[in-house]
Amino acid sequence: MSGKLEGKTALITGASKGLGRAIAEEFAKEGARVAINYAHDEKSALEVKKITGGEIFKADVSNRDQVKEMARQIHEKLGKIDILVNNSGIWYLMPFENYDEEKVRRMLDVNLMGAIYTTLEFLPDLKEKKGTIINIGSNAGIGTAAKNTTFYSLTKAAIIMLTKRLAFDLSEYSIRVNAIAPGWIETDLTIGGKTDEEIRKLEEDFKSRTTLKMFGKPEYIGKAALFLASSDSVYMNGQVIVIDGGRIDNLTHSI
């Protein structure tokens, strides 16, 4: 590897599985020290620690007190961070008319407020380091028609606007803020609990909806995050990279 992140310290929220894990692994390969945040699955977090040589930190990012305590522990063990990846996210499928107050608020708390709390807590580090923020959104937040994902899509649309506003507001500190909007990626979030046959059908269905005829893998997002974290993207700010296999006709297909 080329050591693109040598000497850098990165915090990835929700890094015990899926996209967060893939990002942590890519960063570690390029020399970064990684802070692996997790909320529940310590076993998976320890696996990522073993692979990356990083440190694990438990915190529910929707709880500001827990985020503050995580920051204290990270500063004690690893020092100040250079890179923040706001990856933590959850989703619940529901028709709009079946609005569930608890589930919608939970998505808002984790997907949006979690990114806000974590960014606020580590902003002094990023100002000093002229650091980088990468927000993980979704193509569901920029117009993809996905059945029963209205409220989830709203939280991810907010992440995209947060990215653009922070890119403007924090530019005076030379902090770059960009986002990744994945399409359908094979993770526990999307295929967890499904049978092999259900997964096969799902893969074939989504392959048919992309110009590349491919199903998304977490490593695709990890490599994009590495690009945004490194000096390779030094002239990018306030941008959203869509990684969805070239999804065909976002307005007519439904998940």
Rank of each mutant, 00 (worst) to 15 (best):
residue 74 I to Y: 04
residue 144 T to C: 01
residue 132 T to M: 07
residue 90 I to C: 05
residue 151 F to P: 09
residue 146 A to K: 08
residue 105 R to M: 13
residue 109 D to F: 02
residue 134 I to Y: 00
residue 79 G to F: 07
residue 115 A to N: 07
residue 97 E to I: 08
residue 88 S to C: 08
residue 125 D to H: 13
residue 136 I to E: 11
residue 87 N to P: 06
residue 132 T to V: 15
residue 115 A to P: 06
residue 86 N to A: 08
residue 100 D to S: 03
residue 148 N to L: 05
residue 101 E to M: 06
residue 98 N to W: 02
residue 90 I to S: 07
residue 131 G to Y: 01
residue 70 M to S: 09
residue 83 I to H: 09
residue 150 T to F: 08
residue 114 G to D: 04
residue 117 Y to C: 05
residue 98 N to F: 06
residue 146 A to D: 02
residue 91 W to S: 14
residue 112 L to I: 13
residue 74 I to E: 09
residue 103 K to L: 05
residue 100 D to C: 03
residue 111 N to M: 11
residue 94 M to C: 01
residue 84 L to E: 10
residue 78 L to R: 06
residue 84 L to C: 10
residue 144 T to A: 07
residue 139 N to Q: 15
residue 86 N to Y: 11
residue 110 V to T: 15
residue 128 E to N: 12
residue 74 I to P: 10
residue 150 T to R: 00
residue 124 P to D: 10
residue 138 S to K: 12
residue 110 V to H: 06
residue 93 L to D: 08
residue 96 F to S: 14
residue 77 K to R: 15
residue 144 T to K: 14
residue 94 M to D: 07
residue 150 T to D: 05
residue 109 D to Y: 03
residue 117 Y to E: 00
residue 75 H to C: 03
residue 116 I to D: 04
residue 93 L to Y: 11
residue 98 N to G: 04
residue 70 M to G: 05
residue 118 T to Y: 08
residue 117 Y to D: 02
residue 80 K to W: 10
residue 95 P to N: 13
residue 96 F to C: 05
residue 147 K to N: 02
residue 132 T to K: 15
residue 132 T to Y: 00
residue 72 R to V: 04
residue 146 A to V: 15
residue 78 L to K: 09
residue 97 E to W: 13
residue 115 A to I: 11
residue 104 V to A: 12
residue 127 K to L: 02
residue 98 N to V: 00
residue 143 G to A: 03
residue 117 Y to L: 10
residue 134 I to K: 00
residue 138 S to R: 11
residue 125 D to K: 02
residue 143 G to R: 06
residue 130 K to G: 12
residue 139 N to H: 03
residue 143 G to E: 03
residue 100 D to F: 01
residue 148 N to Q: 07
residue 70 M to D: 10
residue 130 K to N: 14
residue 142 I to W: 01
residue 138 S to W: 10
residue 144 T to M: 13
residue 86 N to I: 09
residue 132 T to L: 01
residue 71 A to R: 15
residue 153 S to Y: 05
residue 126 L to T: 13
residue 82 D to P: 06
residue 78 L to P: 11
residue 90 I to Y: 04
residue 70 M to F: 04
residue 74 I to K: 10
residue 140 A to C: 13
residue 95 P to W: 10
